[in-house]
Design a protein around this nucleic acid. Structure first.
Lengths: 212, 212
DNA sequence: CTGAAAGTTGACCATACGGTCAGGATGCAA
DNA sequence: TTGCATCCTGACCGTATGGTCAACTTTCAG
């Protein structure tokens, strides 16, 4: 993996190895789940001996925790789109774009996150009860304001958020199914664009934020 | 589990035990994933010795396969709502109702299915390429006809189906997250009704099948 | 240059898990 | 009642896996 012949600085070594391990781990956890993933597989994929993994991450749980926390960060960053916006059309459009981009570029991360939640969030329960809840409450408030200002129909903000999460993440989590139904081929640039446009159109029209 | 003192007929014994095992397995697979599930746990939950499990299901894979096939059956049954309908409002409403009912009553099944797809459908690949594809193509054709007949806007049928799957299944697969954001309480009857109504409203309005 | 700190790794260990099996218990047809 | 097929299960086995460790190499501050 890191095959430069010349010597590396300590700092770089650490950063590069951790990065390689986290990347490999994300993939393996996504493909096999926590229980099905093995440290050996992750090590092989990262191009390191297994013992070296345990030097950087003492236990499988610790490694998994790091992976999931990373994903949660990305997840939250996409959220900022929401705040800057002036109305639902801008805000929700931008959010859908951001989330779809994540689904396309980080499908493994999305899967690990889905898996974590499906199994009852054993690692991230505290984050969900604090950070996620705060973020959600904030967005609910924004949507409520949009409704009050007559910028969209009175749709339940929470269920709207769930709908946004569901539709966008579906393209990562169920990517294999979509691919199969697409003749075994992954979606093309055009199809991804169509997907985004469809989602935006249906939802923005559906909440009365734009005319049919 | 099956604690009647009086003797059982052979047929009944087999049926009851298989049922208990499949139920327990569905739960454990949903909670722990295939890799994280253990035959011992399933056996305990079913109230049987582990060796007895292997009498009915030779291997873990075989048991898993049975569970997933069962789920796929239920999945397909909900599909029939679609066919009887005269137009998108009836058809999609009924389908959303059916899928939401599954999400509420069989969340474990939904999770196992999600897990199976996320991991690349190692068991159900052939089903997806045959049965699921045929079903989908059929529904795409129905939706296309509705569009031709002017009963809804020209929305891409496939992406519409994905949206329906995503939004409804989300309430099962991400039930834990929804519950957490609901103050740690599972959704009430009323909240489930609201969820359904919101989804129907946004989608049916969004595709131009009903006025805003 | 030197020594301590950081990084590397093959060999090893304990355990948990999927699966087997032999022998006993039970239902049932004749 | 008898004999057979089905059902049941404790004890056992081989393997895979997470994790440890001690010896080794490399980096780098002073």
């Amino acid at each position: 993996m890191t095959e430069s012949t010349r010597p590396m600085r300590r700092q770089d070594i650490r950063r590069e190895n951790e990065k390689a391990i986290l990347l490999a781990a994300e993939k393996v956890f996504a493909e096999a789940g926590f229980g099905g993933a093995t440290m050996q597989l992750i090590a092989d994929l990262a191009g390191l001996p297994k013992a070296n993994l345990h030097y950087y991450f003492a236990t499988k749980e610790e490694l998994y925790r790091s992976v999931v926390q990373n994903i949660f960060e990305i997840w939250l960053q996409a959220a900022n789109c929401f705040d800057a916006a002036r109305g639902p059309v801008d805000g929700i459009s931008a959010y859908i774009d951001a989330k779809m981009e994540i689904s396309r570029r980080h499908p493994d991360g999305s899967k690990v996150w889905a898996s974590e939640v499906m199994h009852g969030a054993p690692v991230l329960q505290d984050y969900m009860e604090s950070t996620l809840r705060e973020w959600t409450d904030g967005r609910v408030e924004i949507i409520r304001r949009w409704i009050e200002e007559g910028k969209m129909d009175p749709v339940d903000p929470r269920h709207l958020l769930y709908m946004l999460w569901a539709t966008t993440q579906h393209y990562a989590d169920f990517g294999h199914q979509i691919e199969t139904l697409n003749g075994g081929k992954s979606l093309s640039d055009r199809q991804w664009r169509e997907a985004k446009e469809n989602i935006k159109r249906v939802i923005l029209t559906g909440i009365g934020a734009q005319p049919a």
